[in-house]
Simulated assay, not measured.
Amino acid sequence: MEINNQDSVYQAGDVVYVIYRNPHTQSVANVQAAAVVNDPDHPEELALFMYETYYPLTNEVAVYASEADAEAAYTQSFGQM
């Protein structure tokens, strides 16, 4: 399965980058690599796998194909890294 996000197509096995907020400290965010995988609970859907957790891969998640793109978006949103 493929999903269009940010004008790119992702499929299981891709490594992507997201801006991840620390769930324990919401004021902390960083760029994090994540693997695109088949969702174990919904095999027909894709998920992001990072920090030993699966997250739904939807068009509501800002996903970047390169770390540089993710860092540029982070800087634009949050200031210097």
Rank of each mutant, 00 (worst) to 15 (best):
S8C: 03
Y10S: 14
A33W: 00
F49H: 09
A68K: 00
V31I: 08
Q26C: 04
I3H: 03
I19F: 01
D39Y: 05
P40Y: 08
D7T: 06
V18C: 10
D39H: 13
Q32L: 14
A12Y: 01
I3Y: 04
H42Q: 14
Y64D: 07
N5Y: 01
D69I: 02
T75I: 06
S8G: 07
A29L: 12
V15W: 05
D7S: 09
T75G: 09
A34K: 04
G13A: 07
G79H: 10
H24R: 10
Y51T: 15
V31D: 09
E2M: 07
Q26G: 00
A68M: 00
N59V: 02
T58V: 00
P43G: 02
N59F: 00
V31K: 05
V16C: 12
V63T: 00
Y20D: 10
T25S: 14
I19S: 08
V16Y: 13
P40R: 05
V16S: 03
Q76L: 09
A65Q: 12
A62D: 11
H24V: 09
D69A: 15
M50K: 10
M1S: 07
V16T: 06
H24N: 11
E71V: 06
Q26N: 03
V36K: 15
V37T: 13
S77I: 01
A70W: 03
Q32Y: 14
F78I: 08
Q80V: 03
L48G: 06
P40H: 07
T25R: 15
S66E: 08
A34H: 08
Q80Y: 09
N30F: 12
T58L: 01
P43S: 05
V37P: 02
Y55E: 01
Q6M: 03
S66G: 01
D7V: 10
A29W: 11
A29E: 06
D41P: 15
A47M: 01
E60L: 13
A29I: 10
N38P: 08
E67T: 01
V15A: 05
M81N: 09
I19L: 05
E67G: 07
A12G: 06
N30D: 13
A47I: 06
L48W: 04
L46Q: 04
H24Q: 11
E44C: 03
V61I: 10
V31Q: 08
A47L: 09
A72D: 00
V63D: 00
V15Q: 10
F78E: 03
A65P: 00
N30K: 11
E45L: 10
S66W: 04
Y10T: 11
T75S: 09
E44H: 14
V18F: 08
A62I: 04
A65E: 04
Y10P: 06
E71P: 01
T75W: 04
Q32G: 02
